[in-house]
């Protein structure tokens, strides 16, 4: 801190010159558009007046509150399910014998990341279709007699999301699991703690940063996504990004779309603040 405080203005010039292109770019194409969005969201396209009417509408009109509710529940379900399924996977991979095998398993675990984002949802549509492989397999096993109607439903959206976020969470959780000093767990075992106790009071708390990063990314990416619910959800439980796109495409109502986008941004900011404590990189000596 001290060093920075004593830097003279002349010395800080070259550093600022190097960062200024990137800063200016974000100022012009990220900050300014955000401000424009805020200004536009305060404009009521029906009456032509300025005010918070659009925001009031988002929180009072049933279509919008439903979308808000759907978005929040979908995100909560997806975030929890992904973490619960990804943790054992990350743990299993971290417990594999050699670092090379672990790395190989991890690389393969996230390989489907690289399917095109639009195509990934389409592929789930195929898997879940009434005549698709999943139903075919279940019927062949005699578990069901009529095909399950999985495609075009909220369940399908959830499956599509969980599929993506398991991969993401596995990466972040694995990254924090392998950073834990194995001696801590060994010491706990030596002192008589059971395997479960060791896991609950040593391993799990120390892997919280990985969980938090995974949860944060899941929340931001899930609540802001349009493609997965649009392709897989079958317009049943519409989520906020879908209503935003409808405002833009059908009603050409940019002010309303802006207001809803800003509500989304605020939700993300809340998620960030709630998880901030865990997201901050660990300072040495803390």
């Amino acid at each position: 801190m001290n060093k920075v405080a004593t830097v003279s203005r002349r010395e800080s010039l070259p550093g600022l010159l190097f960062v200024s292109p990137a800063l200016l770019w974000l100022l012009a194409f990220f900050a300014a558009p955000l401000l424009a969005m805020i200004a536009v969201s305060l404009h009521d396209s029906a009456t032509g007046q300025y005010g918070i009417g659009n925001f009031v509408q988002v929180f009072t009109e049933k279509a919008y509150t439903d979308a808000l509710f759907n978005s929040l529940t979908l995100t909560a379900v997806v975030t929890l399910a992904s973490l619960v399924l990804a943790y054992p996977l990350a743990y299993s991979i971290a417990s594999l014998r050699s670092a090379r095998i672990q790395r190989l398993a991890l690389t393969f675990a996230v390989l489907p990341f690289w399917t095109s984002y639009v195509v990934r949802s389409y592929a789930w549509l195929l898997v879940l279709a009434p005549t698709g492989p999943l139903n075919a397999a279940l019927m062949a096993l005699g578990l069901i007699h009529t095909p399950l109607r999985l495609a075009y439903s909220t369940t399908a959206t959830e499956i599509g999301f969980v599929h993506f976020f398991i991969m993401l969470d596995t990466l972040t959780i694995y990254a924090s699991l392998v950073q834990i000093n194995p001696r801590l767990a060994l010491a706990a075992r030596d002192l008589g703690a059971s395997a479960l106790r060791t896991f609950l009071s040593i391993t799990l708390p120390l892997s919280v940063p990985g969980i938090a990063v995974g949860a944060f990314l899941t929340i931001v990416l899930c609540i802001g996504d349009y493609v997965t619910p649009q392709i897989l959800g079958g317009m049943r439980a519409i989520v906020l990004p879908q209503t935003v796109m409808m405002q833009i495409q059908k009603h050409l109502d940019l002010p309303m779309a802006s207001a809803m986008s800003l509500v989304l941004t605020v939700i993300m900011a809340v998620a960030y603040l709630a998880l901030y404590r865990f997201l901050r990189p660990e300072e040495p000596g803390r």
Partner: peptide, 29 residues
């Protein structure tokens, strides 16, 4: 080294914490 380094760093990674929808909407508006 210059003043406000932490701030600059924070601003530079900020778009990562915002969904693509917001970036696109802002530019569209």
């Amino acid at each position: 080294r210059f003043r406000g380094q932490a701030l600059v760093r924070g601003i530079l990674v900020l778009p990562m914490a915002v969904s693509y929808l917001i970036v696109g909407m802002g530019l569209l508006v």
